[in-house]
Simulated assay, not measured.
Amino acid sequence: MLNQKTMALMLAGAVAFAPLSLSAEELRQLHVTGEASMDVAPDQAVITLGVREQAEEAGAAMEQVSVRMNEVMTSLGNSGIAGEDMQTQHVSMHPVWSQVRRDGQDERSITGFEASNMLTVTLHDIDGIGGVLDDVLRAGANEFRGLSFSYSERDTAQDLLRTQAVENAFHKARQLAEASGMALGPVREIRDGGSAGGAPMMAMEMARSSDMPISAGTVSLEHNVSVTFDIMEPSGPN
Rank of each mutant, 00 (worst) to 15 (best):
T48R: 05
D155P: 00
Q105L: 09
L27R: 12
L76Q: 07
G130C: 03
K5R: 09
S98M: 13
F144G: 11
Q89T: 08
A24W: 12
H223Y: 13
H223L: 02
L161E: 07
H31R: 14
E114L: 03
Q29M: 15
T48I: 08
A60W: 11
M202S: 11
M10T: 13
V187A: 07
M73Y: 00
A16G: 06
S152M: 04
T218S: 11
M38Y: 06
G128M: 03
L137N: 11
Q64C: 04
L221Q: 05
S152I: 07
H90W: 03
E205I: 09
T48H: 08
G50Q: 02
D135N: 10
G193I: 11
V32Q: 01
A139E: 05
L161R: 09
H31I: 13
G140N: 04
H171E: 14
M38K: 14
Q89C: 00
K172D: 14
D159N: 12
R102A: 10
L11K: 04
M93I: 14
I231T: 08
D135Q: 12
N117D: 12
V219C: 08
R145N: 06
G194W: 05
V67T: 11
E63A: 15
P234L: 13
Q29G: 10
M69G: 02
G193L: 09
F149V: 08
A173M: 03
D106W: 12
I129T: 08
P19C: 04
G13C: 10
T163Y: 04
R102H: 03
N3D: 13
D211I: 08
L147S: 04
L123P: 07
E35V: 05
L161S: 01
N224L: 12
H90D: 14
G130Y: 01
V187I: 10
E143D: 14
E84Q: 11
N224P: 00
V166K: 05
A24C: 07
A36D: 04
R188P: 01
V132N: 02
E71P: 01
L9V: 15
S98H: 12
S148P: 00
G185K: 06
M118E: 06
P237D: 15
F229R: 03
G128F: 04
M38Q: 15
G236H: 00
P237R: 13
D230Y: 12
T48G: 02
S116Q: 09
D85C: 09
I47G: 03
S150R: 15
D125C: 04
I231C: 01
Q4E: 12
L160N: 12
M182T: 09
Q164L: 10
A41C: 05
